[in-house]
Design a binder for these strands. Structure first.
Lengths: 336, 336
DNA sequence: TTGAAAGCGATACCAA
DNA sequence: TTGGTATCGCTTTCAA
């Protein structure tokens, strides 16, 4: 293995000079700078990450705690992960991927062994058991989601409450009086997952203010699950004319069901989906949707992390405003 | 930060003894063992990962190179990632996640800076440009996929050639003479992605041997894309009675299309899907499928990596035999 | 503008 | 069964 001393020797300088050439932390004469660069190139020198971490107390690695469950598959999660890895690289950081499975212990492990400089935590729950552990860490932490008590940690997310309000308002303005909310799988609510509970809450409040009826049911991500969910919604609301879908996995199934019944969108049923735009566009009828801006959120999460690594003390909080894009899956209710 | 010397002092032993207690690399008397353990516990000591890496030349981190593209979303990839992270943890390793975007440079960076002990590379192409770089690394490498030239690297994958053969045989035995292959998105073939080209190849050979007609078209993962793909297949095969689907993203759309046409499965069209079992089960009609055993493959990849880290010299190669599960989406062709 | 050298916090060899 | 200590490769302070 070629070390910094090898480079120094080859360039006829001291190791510290090589280090400074690399870090740019002190002025170097053009002449030596070139000689060092050549030596590095010629020897194929790469700084040893462990040695660097030991000497500098910086690893240039972020931990990303992601909900990798064996059962639930969520494409949106991939978008977050992709965005965060890509953005982290733009800031010269790598990403260590942790699952939820280890819980607070895993977080503690990578943080207190100094494997990472900072942590980004996805899929935060309202009363997340990991928050106390996170709050005591030396490293900066950014949560994706807004728990009830953030314990002074930075948070970023889409304003799901406002998103639900936007959806309900939009449908109400089209004349719908009974709206179904096709929710995420039941387990998501049982965990108190931040985004889902906030969306539900926002929807209920909006419905109350608008004086429309809103029925909500969790929905498993299968055809069967959707059928059951719809049945339940329709037994609660006899004149169901519109749905808000907070579960991109069942959009395809929803169209199958409607087609089997001979119903069309939006003539018989209006739909507002909360999902990434590509999912909304890939359906038989392009869906009116509220974008889940996973890429933007990931980028902001990384930005907040970097701010804190750069010395910023106070935690930041960012709630992105939702935007509804009308694509034609909303119309007036059939019986009007 | 509490270091190994602090623990040593607190326990009244030398730092090396603490190290040996932790590693178990030499016998320690029960008495000191307990004293050290107590000191560790009391002080909340955590070995510094960087220091450890520097001294031992081991990071206990694996690199996972995954196809995280902003455009394409594939749930199967999540299953691989989940499996690999989970299995790596069972072997006391963490996972550093890299995208394809950086190409060979990213691989070189993490490998030659000694950030990782080994690499697992997903989504390998037939002529993968990263293979030369991978072959020169000090660290063990395991590929998921079988490139044309593996350069002495370990490989693991489902036998997609056999999978296609299995599907074609199954349909041919039901009496189908014209079979459509709904492929992955075009970009996947343009890259020469190992699994897709092997499946296509196996399907063509099997069709030839069985004397049935096989038409293949790539398919974009949208409703529109599927419609176009089906049109093309049907214009090539006028008596198309069965399809093999190597694109789980369009299964939902496929049912929508059939329902719109008033066609049923398997009465009008037989389907064999190549996808994870949960996807096959979540459709309006449970699909006869050939399982993509992502979890098993991930586990094997990690196992191969660990074998090599344990000193095994020769690369290993594992091609998993496909298994077809009949769930009722295959029947006899309508006109028979 | 550059060099020398003291750490950083472990591991593992050599002794005892 | 245990201790002392050189060593890993880099960063950074102190001097020149």
């Amino acid at each position: 293995m070629v070390s910094i001393s090898d480079v120094a020797r080859a360039a006829g300088v001291s190791p510290s000079t090589v280090s400074y050439v690399l870090s740019g932390k002190r002025p170097i004469s053009p002449a030596t700078s070139v000689r060092v660069a050549e030596a590095i190139e010629r020897l194929g020198y790469r700084p040893h990450a462990g040695a660097r971490a030991l000497a500098s107390s910086r690893t240039n690695v972020l931990a990303l705690v992601a909900p990798l469950r064996v059962d639930v598959v969520v494409p949106v999660i991939m978008q977050f992960v992709t965005s965060i890895v890509t953005c982290a690289r733009e800031h010269d950081h790598d990403v260590l991927l942790l699952t939820h499975d280890e819980g607070p212990a895993g977080i503690d492990r990578v943080a207190s062994s100094a494997m990472v400089d900072a942590l980004v935590v996805m899929d935060v729950a309202d009363e997340d058991p990991r928050i106390p552990a996170l709050a005591t860490l030396r490293q900066p932490v950014v949560l994706i989601g807004f728990p009830h008590h953030s314990a002074g940690l930075s948070c970023v997310d889409l304003d799901f409450r406002a998103a639900a309000r936007l959806a309900v308002d939009h449908l109400a303005e089209h004349g719908h009086r009974q709206i179904g909310l096709i929710g995420a799988p039941a387990a998501v609510y049982e965990r108190g997952t931040s985004y889902a509970t906030r969306l539900l809450d926002g929807g209920r409040r909006a419905a109350q203010e608008r004086r429309v009826e809103l029925a909500w049911r969790p929905c498993e991500p299968t055809y069967e699950g959707l059928v059951r969910c719809l049945d339940q919604l329709e037994s609660e609301l006899t004149e169901l004319t519109a749905v808000v879908v907070n579960n991109e996995a069942v959009l395809g199934a929803l169209f199958s069901v409607l087609q089997a019944r001979g119903q069309r969108v939006p003539d018989h049923l209006s739909i507002v989906a909360v999902c990434p735009p590509d999912v909304a566009l890939g359906q038989p009828v392009p869906l009116t949707s509220i974008d889940i801006p996973a890429h933007a959120l990931g980028a902001i999460a990384v930005e907040l992390v970097m701010n804190q690594l750069a010395g910023q003390r106070d935690p930041e909080t960012r709630l992105l405003a939702p935007k509804l894009t009308e694509r034609g899956s909303c119309g007036t209710p059939p019986h009007v």
